[in-house]
Design a protein around this nucleic acid. Sequence first.
DNA 1: ACACTAATTATAAGAATTACAAAGTAATAA
DNA 2: TTATTACTTTGTAATTCTTATAATTAGTGT
Lengths: 149, 149
Amino acid sequence: MTVSDHMLQEAVDKLKSSGVRITPQRHAVLEFLLNAETHPTADDIYKALEGKFPNMSVATVYNNLRVFREIGLVRELTYGDSSSRFDCNTSKHYHIICESCGKIVDFHYPSLDEVESLAEQITGFDVSHHRMEVYGVCHECKKDKKQIV
Amino acid sequence: MTVSDHMLQEAVDKLKSSGVRITPQRHAVLEFLLNAETHPTADDIYKALEGKFPNMSVATVYNNLRVFREIGLVRELTYGDSSSRFDCNTSKHYHIICESCGKIVDFHYPSLDEVESLAEQITGFDVSHHRMEVYGVCHECKKDKKQIV
DNA sequence: ACACTAATTATAAGAATTACAAAGTAATAA
DNA sequence: TTATTACTTTGTAATTCTTATAATTAGTGT
């Protein structure tokens, strides 16, 4: 709450300065994303806000996520599963994903700037960013497997 | 053609030893993937083989891609765009993606084994692999942008 | 060639996302 | 304040990608 309050204000300011109106629904989606420990799907967000906004449409969630993405407030992540996930934490970090239960955990590692600059040299692209995920089996799923065997 | 002939034979052998039948459609999908310079979508493959197999179903393409993936012959790549892409080149390499035109280019870089082992230590996962993509704007799109301005 | 089983086909179903038009609401100016 | 304008939300339909199903077809080993 406390950490996010500052970030929330910053995000709201960024929206305002981009000429985006702050509606209650928009604010709620943004707040939810900032406080989210996980990396929710659009449907996760929709379900989470159902209580506060019984009449909110799924389209609103998608609309706002698109606005946030275009401004650079959130990043859209696509993994193997069918739906996109949205991540508000713009501070550099990476993800490790459990191949068994789908859980996504953050982990920190020095940013791979060297890779970016080399890629730039080799390919002639103007590099903007990169993404990386590590895949494996989490502790809980390891235990479960052992119990089955 | 020449390079792929050997790889095609290897792939076919791998399928056979896994108890998978070699049908003309399956062979064609495999051959197309091995010769593909790009990273085609299922629909790309379907359209490319329409001439040879006018009666082939899209389901066949998906079925075969799933079989290939399960055996480890191809890797499924999910980027921001809606459909999955399939990559036959199992040799370790990374991708750089143009944010303007969507082009995907391979580039080689020493595998980031250090990241994997560190992630394993930090998170307690059993790590199996990782993925990384660099994003930017390709040479052609840079030129186009300049022309517009 | 036969029998067994897997693969293909065509189509329907499912899920995620987007498009659209109507109604609502915030910001701005008169 | 009121009117106007442009942006948002809402509800629903449409679209797209992918998977499921059932009937038919076709590989493969003997």
